[in-house]
Amino acid sequence: MSTGESSTSEVLSTEQMVHLLQHEHHRAIISYFDQKTTDSAVFDDLVEYIVSSDLKRGAKSAERREQVTIELLHSHLPRLADADVLEYDPRSETVRYWGNS
């Protein structure tokens, strides 16, 4: 995972952006920051945001919350961090969005 601020000189290629945006949770995380006009969030707020949109489609809350938590921690946040789109601090359970031009 990324440990420092995103380098503004690194711009994702179109192929990298398409690959990152293929998964609905990646899009949801970026959408969260876009809608909230903030660059940081508590991990649980991101989970709740994704779960609430899933519940609108009929998913079961407790099962879905656990699944989303695991997926974010082990897959989605690391991928977005590796692309320097965000940083996740597990000690403070904070996600900082760097975005990407």
Rank of each mutant, 00 (worst) to 15 (best):
V95H: 04
T94M: 07
V68K: 09
F33M: 12
H23P: 01
S92V: 08
R96G: 00
L55E: 12
D45V: 05
R64W: 06
E24S: 14
A59H: 11
D44C: 02
A81H: 02
K56I: 06
S75A: 05
E24M: 06
Y88K: 05
H76L: 02
R96I: 10
E63K: 10
K56Q: 13
L55V: 12
H23F: 09
S53W: 03
E63Q: 10
V95D: 03
E48A: 13
V85S: 01
F33S: 09
E87D: 04
S40I: 10
R65T: 13
P78K: 03
S31T: 15
P78C: 01
D45I: 05
D54G: 00
A59V: 14
T37D: 10
P90E: 01
D54P: 09
D82S: 09
Y32N: 06
G58M: 06
S75D: 13
A81N: 04
A81M: 06
F33A: 08
A62W: 08
I50W: 11
H76V: 10
T37I: 14
H26F: 08
A83E: 06
E63Y: 05
G58C: 06
E87I: 02
L77Q: 04
R27V: 15
I50Y: 08
I30Y: 08
L77T: 05
R96V: 12
H23T: 07
V47G: 02
D44Y: 11
I29M: 11
T94L: 03
P90L: 00
T94K: 03
E93K: 14
R96A: 03
L73G: 00
P78V: 00
V51T: 11
Q67V: 10
V68C: 05
Y49K: 02
D84R: 11
T69V: 04
R91F: 08
H76Y: 07
V68L: 09
L55G: 08
V95N: 01
H76T: 12
S61L: 11
E93W: 02
D45F: 08
E71F: 03
V42N: 14
P78L: 00
V42C: 06
E24H: 13
D82F: 02
L72K: 09
S40H: 13
D44N: 13
V85T: 07
L80F: 00
V68Y: 08
R57P: 00
A83H: 03
D54A: 08
D54W: 13
A59K: 15
A62E: 12
V42F: 13
P90Y: 01
Q35K: 15
D82A: 10
S31Q: 15
Y97H: 08
E24N: 13
D44S: 14
S75I: 05
A59M: 12
A81Q: 09
S40T: 15
H74V: 06
T38F: 02
V85G: 01
A28L: 13
L80D: 01
E66F: 06
E71V: 07
R64D: 05
V51Y: 12
L46W: 11
K60N: 12
D89S: 04
I30A: 14
